[in-house]
Computed example of a mutant assay.
Amino acid sequence: MRYLSKARRLEAVQACVLYFFFYSVLGWLYEVFLEVVVYRWGFTNRGVLLGPYCPVYGVGALVFLLCFSNLMAKREPAWLRWVKPVLVFLGCMLIATAIELATSYILEALTGAWPWQTYRDYAINFEGRIALSPSIRFGLGGLLFLYVLQPLFRRLVHCLSSRVRLGASIAVAVLLAADCAFLLFR
């Protein structure tokens, strides 16, 4: 097993904090886009926290990285190039749906509700907590994330100097911790 030096571990943690934040903000933007442009419901803060981010998307992104980064990095034979995206799609769909289901129970315990109770209107749903249509979108989003966005974000994060990366990751961690504390203690 290959062990990382302390500096490399710190760099990896900083990158994960920044990835978490990037994808939480992108998730919030996605939710607002759906609400305002697609469904035409008007704007509301789609997150449970004060800031423009949905942490469930950050969690999902980190879980996707944990589960699929080795598979994405592997060189495969030509026949597997067509199978791998299907496996990644199905894996992302299942993982995101499980995260969404768990998050609905956690949010209900903490706040008394979960933000996407509109799933009750979907043809195939479970208690209004998860539904087939969003699960398919999450699978497609996972493909976009792993094949397009993550390579770009990885380059962006690794272009930052170690000092800037450290400062940004600390600032993001403090911001998110304060926002979570406000949610829990209000």
Rank of each mutant, 00 (worst) to 15 (best):
C54M: 09
P52Q: 11
L149P: 00
L143D: 08
L66Y: 11
G91P: 10
V25C: 09
G139S: 09
G167K: 01
F68A: 03
L87D: 05
S161C: 07
G139A: 08
V25F: 08
P115N: 12
L152S: 01
G91T: 10
P151A: 08
L18K: 02
P134G: 13
L156N: 01
L144Y: 07
A15C: 11
V164E: 04
P115E: 13
E100A: 11
R163F: 02
R8E: 14
I99F: 07
A123T: 13
S69M: 01
L144D: 02
F182W: 15
L166F: 11
F182L: 15
E11H: 05
I124N: 07
R163C: 04
L146N: 02
S135C: 11
F22L: 15
T118R: 12
L166H: 04
S5L: 03
V148H: 00
F182H: 15
F20Y: 15
Y3I: 03
Y53N: 06
G91W: 05
V157C: 06
N45P: 08
R137W: 14
M93Q: 11
R46T: 02
V38P: 04
L87P: 05
A7M: 03
I99N: 10
W82G: 14
V174G: 04
A73W: 02
V38C: 04
L49D: 05
Q150C: 02
W79G: 00
V37E: 09
A109T: 13
I136D: 06
A178R: 09
A181K: 07
R154M: 00
G142N: 10
P134Y: 09
G139H: 08
S161T: 11
V63A: 13
V164T: 13
E100V: 05
F64E: 07
L183I: 01
L87T: 04
L18W: 01
L80I: 09
S135G: 15
E31P: 02
A123V: 13
L62M: 09
Y19T: 09
L160I: 01
S5F: 01
V63K: 01
R129T: 03
R163I: 02
M93C: 13
R120Q: 14
L50Q: 14
G142V: 05
L4H: 00
G58H: 03
F153G: 00
E108L: 11
R165S: 11
T44R: 12
L66N: 04
G128H: 06
E127F: 10
L175I: 04
S69L: 01
A177Q: 02
R155C: 08
R155G: 14
L90R: 00
G58R: 03
R163D: 09
F68L: 15
V59T: 07
Q117F: 06
F138Y: 15
Y119A: 12
G142Y: 07
V36G: 07
A78R: 14
W41N: 14
A123S: 12
R154P: 00
Y19C: 09
F153M: 12
V157I: 15
